[in-house]
């Protein structure tokens, strides 16, 4: 039996070790190499690549902090959009529920490029949104959404929506329905019941959703690549450009390490805040 377990797991574990663990180790290793230029690097143990990033106010403020800001902003917007939707889906039943579920989750199964294409058609200067907005008299002349950070945020919100909704829906559906009925029974109205019972109990789901979507947004490179302005300063895109366009693998690697570290710190910070502000109170009330 033990031999069977090993034989069954071995193919996957070998593959993942060779093509996930070792490559990740390799990224850390070459982040200390010297870049020679022209796609070449010299094996070394230097901190140059880290200093290049961390020693630069430009990178720290205009790339790292800027990415945290944009990613967080888009994450919060997804949550605001997803929460009522999750609440409504949780209450619906049968065919309506399944159709809403399918619609919410379909962006996950329709490719990024395809979705981006649709938004390009909508957002372009002469695109459909502008025709609509001008037609409605909101603007006098076309507003620019495309190749612009607004477009990036809208798409990040769009792509984060399914993850956020699913995470929230899981936690809403896990709430024992009798809890709300008990609150109504002792005299709470719907509004009070929601804020005092349902909402606090969905905090774990909200937190999970925020972590997932923030991680995705923070590392995003495809969205800023496709809809952002050429000089988009998001950190994922920077990695992509340094690796594939400038061929500076040591620098791309060191930025990756910094990105993982920064993303972990933010998530831990978020967790701490959540714990302190909300989850702790829930514990205390039990």
């Amino acid at each position: 039996m033990r031999a069977g377990v090993v034989a069954f797991l071995a193919p996957s574990l070998v593959l993942l070790t060779i093509f996930v663990l070792i490559p990740l180790g390799w990224v850390i290793r070459i982040s200390f190499n010297e870049n020679v230029g022209g796609a070449y690097m010299r094996s070394a143990w230097v901190l140059d690549n880290y200093i290049q990033f961390l020693g630069s106010t430009w990178y720290l403020v205009n790339t790292l902090w800027y990415t945290v800001y944009i990613a967080f902003f888009a994450t919060v917007l997804s949550a605001l959009l997803a929460y009522p939707v999750a609440l409504y889906i949780a209450r619906s039943t049968g065919f309506q529920k399944s159709i809403l579920m399918t619609l919410v989750l379909s962006p996950l199964l329709i490719g990024l490029v395809t979705l981006v294409y649709g938004w390009i058609v909508i957002f372009r200067g002469g695109g459909i949104l502008n025709s609509l907005l001008i037609g409605l008299g909101v603007y006098d002349e076309p507003a620019q959404y495309m190749w612009n950070i607004k477009g990036v945020v809208i798409l990040l919100v769009y792509i984060g929506m399914p993850y956020m909704t699913m995470s929230l829906l899981d936690s809403i559906e896990r709430i024992n329905p009798f809890l709300a009925e008990a609150a109504r029974n002792v005299g709470a109205n719907r509004w009070t019941t929601f804020w005092k019972i349902t909402f606090p109990l969905t905090m774990p789901g909200l937190y999970a959703g925020l972590v997932i979507v923030f991680t995705l947004n923070f590392a995003a490179f495809a969205v800023p690549l496709m809809v952002g302005p050429d000089e988009t300063r998001m950190i994922g895109l920077l990695i992509y450009k340094e690796a594939l366009i400038n061929n500076n693998l040591p620098f791309a690697s060191s930025i990756s390490v910094i990105m993982i570290a920064a993303s972990s710190v933010t998530i831990i910070g978020l967790g701490y805040l959540f714990n302190k502000m909300i989850l702790n109170k829930l514990e205390a009330k039990k």
Binding site: L13, L16, F19, V27, G236, A243, S263
Partner: peptide, 27 residues
């Protein structure tokens, strides 16, 4: 640990996962 390793390709951001494979496979 085995669980974590098997799930790792979706836990690691695609940017890093792709970069790691790119540099390693080139190597």
């Amino acid at each position: 640990f085995v669980n974590l390793l098997i799930m790792s390709p979706i836990l690691i951001p695609a940017t890093i996962f792709s970069l790691a494979l790119y540099v390693f496979l080139a190597r």
